Computed example of a mutant assay.
Amino acid sequence: MWRGGAVGLFCAGVAGQLGKNILVLDHAEILGENIRNSGGGRCNFTNLHSSPVNFLSLNQHFVKSALARYPSAEFIKLVAAHGIDFHEKHQGQLFCDDSAKQIIEMLFAECSKGKVTIRNPVTIKSIQQEGDLWAVATDDGLEKSRAVVMATGGLPVPAIGATAYSLDIAKQFGLNVIAPRPALVPLSFTAETFGNLNELAGLSIPVRIAAGSKGRRYGACRFNEDLLLTHKGLSGPAVLQASGYWEEGEPIHIDWLGAIERPGGFNCDELFNNEENRVKLSETILASVLPQRLAKAFADQRGLTGRKWAEVSKKDRQALKELLTNWSVKPAGTLGWKKAEVMLGGVDTKDLDGQTMISRKNRGLFFIGACVDVTGHLGGHNFQWAWASGFVCAQAL
């Protein structure tokens, strides 16, 4: 028995086809909303390159078994077998050509093959252990089972049914829960820390971004992704990726030139030392590698606007280079759960068996998907964790 989101439906379908008697209980009137709203309505259902390095967890090794037993290639085979056309986008991200509804329909079809019973909307009143059985009291009666699978997702986007119920059940039965916080979320800034760049809202640019450190909760990161300047601060894939590693009170570091792609490569030193640039204005030189508005903003910030490059001292050139390649800014915070795509933290992996997702303390109690302290990078990795953790759980039921 479990919730009918992505991981719950997938796990139910696999288990049902293995001959298990499966009942899915969900409080939502419409199932699969987390899928329907993903990927701009086309569902970024996995990533070709999904591997343990694409996940954050206090135990980096925990994901290895599940991902090895059910890699992205296996889910891709399932998608293809259902005749769903898809395409690859940035860095291995796979999307449906048509609609995310196709993935939902596929999961329901797999459940149908496994003769899975789905009951919704149903409110769970309590879950209790009675000897070798689990008693689940609902507003539609009492259900008893040898196993309970908790697949309620994480805290983000409560409007589509995500709740903290799995975390509550984990605590009820003595499992540790890593304090959750929003991730894959935009960061906010004060006017003082953000400076004149808040006038550039709507501008997008590829950058290299770094956050966190080895001694922190989830270590350090470095990503080459697009950054979006907004009225409230910074967003876009670069910032969403970094948000999981960022700790309150710490800065993030942005190399505005680090993700430039040019035939033969881009040499930052050539930009600052090229003698052919001597008669050009500083903002013109910067505009050769940066959007014009951003180039002028940085030239203004260093007092170089209107000055020819030959008039700029080596010291000022070096200071400008440092500003552009190691721009450090301290976020005021995140934009919170309403803007977050996923949750960091969750059920402590120390209390779960990574090969089965079963509680080490409670026979027959499983936790899968986003409620576990495993969070994927942007780009289909969180769905891949859902499929992988759901698969190994189904095998163990």
Results as ranks from 00 to 15, higher is better:
residue 390 G to T: 04
residue 293 R to N: 08
residue 373 D to H: 01
residue 183 A to C: 07
residue 179 A to N: 08
residue 312 V to N: 02
residue 264 G to R: 00
residue 152 T to C: 09
residue 9 L to D: 01
residue 245 Y to S: 00
residue 54 N to F: 02
residue 55 F to I: 04
residue 270 E to L: 09
residue 83 G to R: 04
residue 13 G to C: 03
residue 152 T to Y: 13
residue 277 N to A: 07
residue 284 T to Y: 08
residue 64 K to S: 13
residue 349 T to K: 01
residue 69 R to P: 09
residue 273 N to Q: 15
residue 162 A to M: 02
residue 231 H to S: 06
residue 119 R to P: 03
residue 299 A to S: 11
residue 127 I to F: 05
residue 374 V to Y: 13
residue 320 L to V: 07
residue 287 A to T: 00
residue 185 V to K: 04
residue 156 P to V: 04
residue 238 A to P: 12
residue 132 D to S: 13
residue 6 A to T: 01
residue 380 G to P: 03
residue 211 A to T: 07
residue 32 G to R: 07
residue 40 G to M: 11
residue 314 K to T: 08
residue 147 A to K: 15
residue 193 T to N: 09
residue 201 A to R: 00
residue 251 P to H: 10
residue 130 E to Y: 12
residue 295 A to F: 12
residue 32 G to N: 10
residue 2 W to A: 15
residue 249 G to S: 13
residue 200 L to H: 01
residue 147 A to W: 02
residue 133 L to W: 11
residue 26 D to T: 15
residue 321 K to T: 06
residue 137 A to G: 06
residue 301 Q to M: 01
residue 189 F to Q: 04
residue 217 R to N: 12
residue 343 M to N: 08
residue 131 G to E: 00
residue 302 R to F: 12
residue 90 H to L: 15
residue 352 L to V: 11
residue 14 V to T: 13
residue 271 L to D: 09
residue 39 G to F: 13
residue 52 P to C: 07
residue 301 Q to R: 00
residue 306 G to P: 01
residue 167 L to A: 06
residue 83 G to S: 04
residue 301 Q to F: 05
residue 178 I to H: 06
residue 262 R to M: 04
residue 15 A to V: 10
residue 234 L to I: 13
residue 332 A to W: 07
residue 2 W to R: 15
residue 320 L to I: 10
residue 159 A to H: 10
residue 11 C to D: 05
residue 278 R to S: 11
residue 191 A to D: 13
residue 145 S to E: 09
residue 152 T to Q: 08
residue 376 G to R: 07
residue 342 V to R: 08
residue 174 G to I: 09
